[in-house]
Amino acid sequence: MLALVTACGGGAPAAGQTGQAGKPLRIAVVMPSATTDLAFSQSMWDALKKIQADMGGESAVELKYSENMFKVADAAAALRDYASQGFDIVIGHGSQYGSSIQEIAPDFPKTTFAWGTEVNTFGMPNVYAYTAAAEQGGYVNGVLAALLSKSKVIGVTGPVEAGDAKTYVDGFTQGVASVDPGYKLSKTWTGSFSDVALMTEAAKTHIAAGADVLTGSSQSVVGSIGAAKDAGNVMWFGTQQDQASLAPQNVVASQQYDWTGILKQMIENRKNGKLATRSRPRSRLRPTKQLPASKTAASRSSPNPGPAKGRCSARCACTRRMQRSRPANRKLG
């Protein structure tokens, strides 16, 4: 499946210097669910493990995590704790952690902070914001779903109508509509990222209403996948992680989040003495700050910013990664 991860930042002046020879780079992450949730949290943990392996194992990168941090107050305490312990990069992996990062980051000017999925760095020199282009894979999933559906009834089981859950569903909806606007596409939102029982029932309701293709996001969709499996001939399209292991006969394709791009960027920038890259909304580009020369970021004060795409990669440090498609060896219909 296609996985697109977009991270936006800008350029910011240098500050701390870490990752010297001999000392491992220390990264801590706080996540709303488990590292094995087959969804949002696992996508980040898997990426961190991959980075660790690529950089030479535990002697090069030390990883710590706090999982199941649904309570923002607990997460804030954990984030502050990691920063106090001297971790180089502290990640709040959830859009609900923004206010905590905003509060904590100024107290630890030599620590790199990151949070997502969001685009707001609060204008702070040591904060990254990252987001996923969930609508891109959602569109592809939508096209596939529409082409495979026989009943022409498709169900979406979402958690909360916000964030990447919403953008994924929006992309999916447009993908379906691009094949045939006459398809019946109904959406349910359970109002919870974790209520598996209600998510299961939502999926069963879609199936009872005639849907033969389902999709949805959040860690509670394992319930929807279970419902599709029970029904037998219902197809599932996943997002955030490869969910085929839950129901190999039903999961047709999954969009996977791959955060290694932004993580590598963060590590690379830190090596070059930059804590973060300050983000700026595109419409308010003000070429003022002079940036240190580096391979990854071009100077914003360049008189000729170049074509649109190049400008974006220079200014926003957008990283787009594509992953190999997961085989669709599934029973279809």
Binding site: A34, N68, S192, V196, T200, G226, D230
Partner: peptide, 16 residues
Amino acid sequence: ALSLALVNLFQENLTA
């Protein structure tokens, strides 16, 4: 009944 008849799986904090 929840893990074997309703959702047919287990996850952390399944009961929510």
